[in-house]
Computed example of a mutant assay.
Amino acid sequence: MDMAVGELGAAGKYASAGDNRPLAIEARGLIKSFDGTRAVDGVDISVPEGAIYGVLGPNGAGKTTTLRMLLGIIDPDEGVRRVFGHDRPHDIGRLIGYLPEERGLYPAMKAVEAIAFMGALRGLPLAEGRRRAAELLERHDLAHAAGRTIRQLSKGMAQTVQLLGTLVHRPRLVVLDEPFSGLDAINQGKLEVLIRNLADDGVTVIFSTHVIHHAERLCEGVAIIAGGRVPYAGSVEAARDRIPAQVRLETRAREGRWMQALPAETRRVGDFFHFPLPETGIEPLLRQLIEGEAGILSLSIERAGLHDAFVAIAGEAAARQLAADNEEAAR
């Protein structure tokens, strides 16, 4: 599809107004149906170059279909997408590294050859691929596994080998579909470090996940997807700011005129008062509490997390499905 860049401009950037980075990925109005069922229904996403971006939602929400459309693996029924300004992502395949959710390596192939082979699929000469593969394996403490076949590796080691094969040709854009699935806590931590290092080197990373804490720790921006729709695409900070920060107050006095200063939404739970942070800030309230001799024992301001934002944006049903997916993955 030939489409002028300007026709995608309405998708906009999720970053702040001062962010002048060009977009690595831009998509508008992506729609895809399978057998009469609409799997993705009007997705808009914009990802600046060098960002870490998450596509967050429960299993079956349309995350994989969205990523495949962005990469040109499948075409949308409607809508447009561009990768580094190209509307035919296959034409710039050498700039892209893709780790699909379905892991797949030849069991009889040695680790170093598997990485080199994946690089060759992106145009990297085999000899150079083998050299880079050996370097990557050593860097990730897997030099001892270079000559082993895939079937001789543990599940975590095999997943790492496939990830390194995704990176061996040094792409500018890395797309990871549920990359943390099946990894233990140690390897999840290593993957988070790897993703941060890629972004530090200017590589754009977009990954799908149903685990909120990965997105909250890593991502600059997220697209929240539920039922094939994206009710929110923007910065993590802006998503969290949709919910007012909550104040947790404990006082020595049980009652008194100071209570008149508390907001109308205040809830009392045991020895604590809970209420949204007033728009005027905490200082005027503090003054009234002190003057009213409330006897402040503790006061904390707790900002909403991405989980709270997800519930508010996507709804309780999507949040319950997300929790169920996490429980299933933990088994």
Rank of each mutant, 00 (worst) to 15 (best):
A4V: 03
V5R: 14
E7L: 13
A11D: 03
Y14E: 06
A17Q: 13
R21C: 08
R28F: 01
L30N: 03
I31F: 15
S33M: 07
F34N: 09
F34M: 14
R38I: 11
V43K: 07
I45F: 13
S46F: 09
S46D: 13
V47G: 04
A51T: 00
L56D: 11
G57S: 05
P58W: 05
A61R: 14
K63Q: 13
M69E: 04
M69F: 01
G72K: 10
I74E: 11
P76W: 08
F84M: 08
H86N: 07
D87K: 01
H90E: 15
G97R: 13
E101P: 00
M109H: 00
M118C: 03
M118N: 02
A120Y: 01
A120E: 02
R122P: 03
A127F: 06
R132Q: 05
E138T: 04
A143E: 11
T149N: 00
T149C: 00
G165I: 02
V168H: 12
H169V: 01
E178C: 06
P179I: 09
P179W: 08
D184V: 10
I195H: 03
R196T: 01
T204N: 05
I206A: 10
F207C: 15
H210C: 12
V211L: 15
E216C: 10
R217D: 12
A226F: 09
P231W: 09
G234T: 06
A239E: 14
D241K: 14
D241R: 15
E255V: 07
E265M: 15
L286I: 03
I290F: 10
E291T: 05
E291K: 09
L297H: 11
S300F: 02
E302Q: 15
R303F: 01
H307N: 12
I313H: 00
A314G: 06
A318C: 14
D325N: 11
R331E: 12
